[in-house]
Amino acid sequence: MTATTEINNIISEENLVYKKTDVLLDNEMHYCPGCTHGVIHKVIAEVIEEMDIQDKTIGVSPVGCSVLAYNYLDIDWQQAAHGRAPALATATARLMPEKYVFTYQGDGDLASIGCAEIIHACNRGENIVVVFVNNAIYGMTGGQMAPTTLENQVTATSPYGRDCASTGAPMKISEMVSLLPGTRFVTRQSAETAGAVRKLKKAIRKGFENTREKKGLSFIEIVGTCSSGWKLSPTQSNEWMKENMFPYYPLGTLKDE
């Protein structure tokens, strides 16, 4: 048997172990090569499929790179104004308590312009899942400084490195929201390895299960990369993230009640 024949024998339906979920649409993603958004989208889609809640899930997309998230997940979506996704999700979850409502927000959207909305949604303990993608930079507008940009990190609006004396320290949002009684599950994950993706999926599944059990707000931060903004290759970005982001934004679950 030649090598080619052997591969062809393996590639058959009964041997299938990993394929794209149908909840993920076939549209080609507009994200840059290596962007963490793609992995997170996929994981959410897989959880929706596994929990069989495609007809009951409403996503709220932000302003930022993931503004077009609705092009990729085959569910109903609301596209929010910059930072306001938790407000939309609040009303949606209260008016339709049997549905699964999640916001998908970047660090500029959630931690800067939408700081009031997220803090108060967390404090009220809205029965929603918040997916917070922290890549320490504004992606869509061209790599400007975010509230989560690390000290001395070079961005388009901190060209000499972030000066914390002037701009404040990088905000640890998960730590902040974990202090609020309204949050039930607060975790910080990543998606750079197969193991990390598996853990992320468990966390997102737990978030949606909390919604089902009407437990309140689940906050899932994902430390991710922005290779275009960081001006590194996707693989270098992962290394930079591990070296610089993980020490400041340690992975793990901060709260699980």
Binding site: A80, R84, A87, L88, T90, I119
Partner: peptide, 21 residues
């Protein structure tokens, strides 16, 4: 449902979410 929002900005965006439903 009656909810006092944290700001006018949040209130109108809650309206956006509710209207979307």
């Amino acid at each position: 449902v009656v909810l006092q929002a944290e700001s006018e900005v949040a209130a109108i965006n809650m309206v956006y979410g509710g209207a979307s439903c």
